[in-house]
Design a protein around this nucleic acid. Structure first.
Length: 420
RNA sequence: GGAGGAUUCGCCUAGUGGCCGAGGGCGCACGCUUGGAAAGCGUGUAUAGGGCAACCUAUCAGGGGUUCAAAUCCCCUAUCCUCCGCCA
C-alpha cells in the first residue's frame, strides 16, 4: 500500500512510477480527489459526533420537559450522525479499495519497460562445452530414477511429479544446505503454514479474488501459498517490533503451490514449471533506510548458494513493468540450462520497501518512540527447480551426475548413478 | 461435529447503560530523595485518523443491532480453554 501522506506531498513520484511500469498515471488524480472528499466527509462526521456526545451529557443531566425537548433534538442529531458516518465510511472504503489496487512505487533505478526490458547486471561462470549430446533434466531424472512425472500425473494430474530415490535425496540435501547457510548467516529457520487467510494473502500483495495463480479452498476461506514469503510477511502482522530487533531475518522452508494458469504449453516437460515445489526463502524485516543495502545482502546470499552448486548464471535487474504488485526492485539470478541454451530463473529477490508492511501493519518503534512501517524483503535460497540446473550442468556421458562438492555432505553421495 | 467458559491499555485485573479511552497493581521511563544503591515519593506510560497548535474523532477480540447515549444489553463470527463425539 502506498502511503497517503507521501502521495499528497509528492504525487509526481507515483505518477513517474506508474509510467515506468507502463501504466496510466491518471489514478493519481482519482486518488487525490477521493482522499479530499473522504477527509471532508470525515470532518463533518466528527463534528456532528462531537456535538452528539456533548448533547448526550446534557440529556443525562436534564429532567422533565427540558429532557423531553433535548431528547427530540438528540434523536434528530443521531440520525444525522448515522448518515454522515455512513458517507465517511463509504468514501473510506472506496479509497482503500483504490489504494489497495495500486502497485508499489518503483525504485527509480529499476529499468523502465516490460518483461523484456531487463538489464543484465552480471554474468558468472561460463557454460560448459559438452563433448557428447547432453540429456535434458527429465531424461536424466528418469535414468537416475529421480523424477517420476508419469505417476505424478496419474496421482495428481499434469505438472505434478514424484521425487524419488536420489531425486528426493538431492532435494533434501539442497534445501538443507540452504537452511544451514541461512542459519550460519543468522537467519531464524522457520517451517511455515502453507494455507493462509485471505487477509494474509492480500497483505502480501496478492489479489485473492483475481489472481489466477492462487489455489483456493473456498470451503474454508483459505489459500495455498505460492511461496513462504506470504506466511513470513504475515508472521509479524499488526505488531510493533522493538527497534533493536531489526533487521529480523527468517529462512522459511515450505512447499509452494501455483496454478500456472495461462501457461499451457509452456515448460510442459519436466519439473521446470510445476504446481507444487519446495523452497527455502529468505525474508527480512528492516528499517526502510537500510532496505537497499539489505537487498544487496540477500542477493549476495543467493550468489553464495549458486556458487555452491557450480552452475553458470547471470543476474538481471527486472524492468518496472515486470515487478509485480509489491516489489520496488527485483533481481533475478538465472541459471544456465544447457539443453535449452538459455538462462532460467533460479532465484528472485525483491525489495518491497514499506508496501507489504503497511498493508499488514508491521511497524517498529524508532528512537524517538514513534512508530513507522518496516521494510520487507525476500529472496530465494533454493528451490526444486535447482535440480534441473544441477542435473543438466553436472551430467556425464553415461547419464550419471556428479554432485557438486559443497552439496555432497548434504546428499551423502558423490555421484548419482543411473538406476540399474 | 456438540455442550459450556473466556477474550478490557506490555502483563495481571476493576468495571452490567451516561461522571469510562477506561480505575488499581506490576512492569517500564523520567524526576525527587541518597555518599551510592534499595526502599519511598512524584510524574508519565496504547494505536490510528483529521487540523497538525490547542483540540477533535475512532478503537475495551472482530462485525452487526437496540438506544438520545454501549466496555456494559441483543445477534453473528474468530481465537483460546474444558468436556463429549468422530478421525488420524
Amino acid at each position: 500500500m502506498i502511503d497517503l501522506r507521501t502521495l499528497r506531498e509528492d504525487p509526481d513520484r507515483l505518477r513517474a512510477s506508474q509510467r515506468a511500469r507502463g501504466e496510466s498515471d491518471s489514478v493519481v488524480d482519482s486518488l487525490l480527489e477521493l482522499d479530499e472528499r473522504r477527509r471532508s466527509a470525515l470532518t463533518s462526521f466528527e463534528t456532528l459526533r462531537a456535538e452528539q456526545k456533548s448533547m448526550g451529557k446534557s440529556v443525562s443531566k436534564a429532567s422533565g420537559e427540558e429532557k423531553a425537548a433535548l431528547l427530540g433534538r438528540a434523536k434528530d442529531l443521531a440520525a444525522q450522525v448515522k448518515t454522515a458516518e455512513a458517507e465517511a465510511e463509504r468514501l473510506g472504503g472506496e479509497l482503500d479499495e483504490l489504494l489497495g489496487s495500486i502497485p508499489n512505487i518503483v525504485d527509480p533505478a529499476a529499468p523502465h519497460g516490460g518483461e523484456d526490458d531487463y538489464t543484465v547486471l552480471e554474468t558468472v561462470g561460463t557454460p560448459r562445452e559438452f563433448d557428447f549430446e547432453p540429456r535434458d533434466h527429465l531424461e536424466l531424472g528418469e535414468l537416475l530414477g529421480a523424477i517420476d512425472m508419469e505417476r505424478g500425473a496419474k496421482v495428481s494430474g499434469s505438472r505434478f511429479f514424484f521425487l524419488k530415490g536420489v531425486g528426493a535425496r538431492l532435494q533434501l540435501g539442497l534445501l538443507n544446505m540452504a537452511m544451514q547457510q541461512a542459519i550460519e548467516a543468522g537467519f531464524v529457520p522457520m517451517i511455515t503454514p502453507v494455507l493462509v487467510k485471505p487477509e494474509t494473502m492480500a497483505g502480501t500483495g496478492f489479489h485473492v479474488a483475481h489472481d489466477k495463480e492462487i489455489y483456493r479452498l473456498p470451503e474454508d476461506d483459505l489459500y495455498l501459498v505460492g511461496t513462504s514469503e506470504v506466511s513470513l510477511a504475515g508472521y509479524h502482522a499488526h505488531e510493533i517490533l522493538p527497534e533493536g530487533d531489526l533487521p529480523l531475518r527468517y529462512a522459511g522452508w515450505s512447499s509452494c503451490f501455483r496454478r500456472e494458469a495461462g501457461s499451457y504449453g509452456k515448460d510442459t516437460r519436466g519439473i521446470i514449471r510445476v504446481h507444487q515445489f519446495d523452497k527455502v526463502e529468505m525474508f527480512s524485516y528492516c528499517r526502510p533506510e537500510n532496505a537497499s543495502e539489505e537487498h544487496q545482502r540477500l542477493l549476495q546470499w543467493e550468489k553464495d548458494m549458486l556458487a555452491k552448486i557450480e552452475v553458470p548464471y547471470r543476474i538481471i535487474d527486472t524492468a518496472a513493468g515486470d515487478l509485480g504488485m509489491s516489489a520496488a526492485r527485483k533481481f533475478d539470478c538465472e541459471g544456465w540450462i544447457p539443453t535449452q541454451g538459455r538462462y532460467r530463473e533460479l532465484t528472485s529477490t525483491s525489495n518491497c520497501t514499506e508496501f507489504q508492511a503497511r498493508r499488514l501493519g508491521v511497524r517498529f518503534r524508532d528512537k524517538d518512540g514513534k512508530t513507522q512501517s518496516a521494510a520487507t524483503l525476500n529472496g530465494t535460497l533454493a528451490t526444486t527447480r535447482w535440480i534441473v540446473a544441477i542435473l543438466e550442468n553436472h551430467q556425464q556421458a553415461d547419464g550419471s551426475v556428479v554432485v557438486p562438492q559443497a552439496l555432497r555432505p548434504f546428499v551423502g553421495l558423490d555421484v548419482l548413478e543411473p538406476a540399474k
